[in-house]
């Protein structure tokens, strides 16, 4: 990395302005409480014009306020893009209030806004009260949607290839899952609420129920699928690199679960969850 080359004055001005713009306080308070107030010579708002000029129609504080307001608006809009169902569930005012608290706890340090909302689920878990578990579950689900959108795009295994696999090769066959999938263990069936929201219905907040949801992206878009605990176990093993035989270990041949999983496996292939089958 290159060392900063500017003299302190530009650096201090930027640090002061960044503090003022990103502060959760009202701008006047933010200016007066800034750690850099003394260095820039603005101990109170009336002294702001020592640094920032007034405009033809706006005072210095009003001009700086455009950036202060713009910061909040821009980042909340970004979080709204990633969490539309959570906003719907909480209501816009509550959602914005939580976003402002979140931005203080998790200020953006990345060049891109893509990862801005990556800690919303744990934030909800910690901070919200009545809606905490459901909000956190819904946030987990919505963030998994963001993740699979940005996950690597892999070629998809053609389901017709399965017809050519010799029967005695199946046990050692290794289906390789695509990158764009996530398995979630949720406290609520948040995907039902999410699907209802997307369908522009007025979904009810579901009662708590341990739910396993698979989120994935294929050629038609992002979809979700509820999994049984057996299916989850098998899919997690395949993601870890197991062969089909290893993934199905522990399930008897005549076990209903095994048959269900084999049907599920064919469905997963048809949904585009695998990139190839190593024999």
């Amino acid at each position: 990395m290159t060392a900063a080359t500017a003299s302190p004055s530009l650096r201090i001005l930027q640090a002061w302005m960044s503090d003022a713009i990103t502060s959760p306080l009202e701008l006047e308070e933010a200016i007066e409480q800034s750690d850099h107030a003394g260095e820039v010579g603005v101990g109170e708002v009336s002294e702001l014009e020592r640094v920032v000029t007034a405009g033809p129609r706006l005072s210095a504080i009003e001009r700086l306020g455009i950036y202060h307001e713009g910061y909040r608006h821009r980042l909340i809009e970004c979080l709204l893009d990633d969490y539309p169902a959570l906003c719907h569930a909480l209501g816009r005012d509550r959602f914005e209030e939580i976003c402002l608290q979140y931005l203080q706890a998790w200020p953006s340090t990345a060049r891109s806004l893509n990862p801005l909302g990556s800690h919303i689920a744990e934030f909800c878990q910690e901070r919200l009260e009545a809606l905490s578990a459901f909000a956190a579950a819904l946030a987990q689900l919505e963030w998994s949607v963001v993740e699979v959108i940005h996950a690597r795009s892999d070629p998809v295994l053609d389901a017709r290839c399965l017809e050519y696999v010799p029967p005695n090769a199946w046990a050692n066959a290794r289906p390789v899952p695509i990158s764009a999938l996530r398995i979630l263990n949720l406290t609520h069936p948040a995907h039902r609420y999410y699907d209802g929201f997307l369908a522009q219905q007025e979904p009810e907040i579901p009662s708590p129920a341990r739910t396993i949801v698979l989120t994935y992206r294929n050629s038609t878009g992002v979809e979700s699928l509820e999994l049984s605990s057996v299916a989850e176990r098998v899919l997690r093993r395949l993601i870890a690199g197991s062969t089909l035989g290893e993934a199905l270990a522990g399930l008897d041949d005549d076990d209903v679960s095994r048959q269900e999983v084999m049907v599920a496996f064919q469905s997963w292939v048809a949904r585009g969850l695998f990139t190839r089958l190593d024999l």
């Binding site: 713009i21 821009r74 970004c78 200020p107």
Partner: peptide, 8 residues
């Protein structure tokens, strides 16, 4: 500045 991005 100082590792914090204002995105403006």
């Amino acid at each position: 500045v100082a590792g914090r991005n204002v995105h403006d």
